[in-house]
Design a binder for these strands. Structure first.
Length: 111
DNA sequence: CCCTTGACTATCT
DNA sequence: GAGATAGCCAAGG
């Protein structure tokens, strides 16, 4: 194999995997939680590079809209997957709760 | 090395 | 509150 995952990738994957079902996080929040503030744009790349499926549909924009073009396959897929988790959308924006501070403990450890 | 691109965000109008 | 602008940062041509 040939994938070299950077510490960045691993951190991002860990955070995304830690997002509870039915909840969403913004790209910037994921980056920050992973320890890489201002790397919101890199989060998408890291997720694309993931060797195994990731709950990427739980990652949305800061304003709670989806990052894909409306009508695109990716957009529809994300909306459908969210719907399966009980998350619906209103006026183009996701209606879901944000992970509480418990997520930080989950990622950074009980410490 | 310069320039463009991108699953972003904060700020201003 | 929607559109425009600037900032941000890594990757690729």
């Amino acid at each position: 194999m040939d994938e070299r995952q950077t510490p960045f990738d691993a951190a991002i994957w860990a955070v995304v995997n830690a997002i509870p079902r039915g909840q969403v996080m913004a790209y910037g929040e994921v980056a920050r939680a992973a320890g890489f503030p201002r790397h919101a744009r890199m989060v998408s790349k890291a997720m694309s590079r993931s060797p195994e499926p990731l709950p990427w549909h739980r990652v949305v924009r800061a304003d709670r809209s989806l990052a894909f073009e409306v009508g695109s396959d990716a957009f529809d897929t994300q909306r459908q997957r969210l719907a399966d988790e009980g998350v619906t959308m209103l006026n183009g924006k996701v209606i879901a709760e944000r992970p509480t501070d418990d997520l930080d403990a989950l990622i950074w450890g009980p410490e």
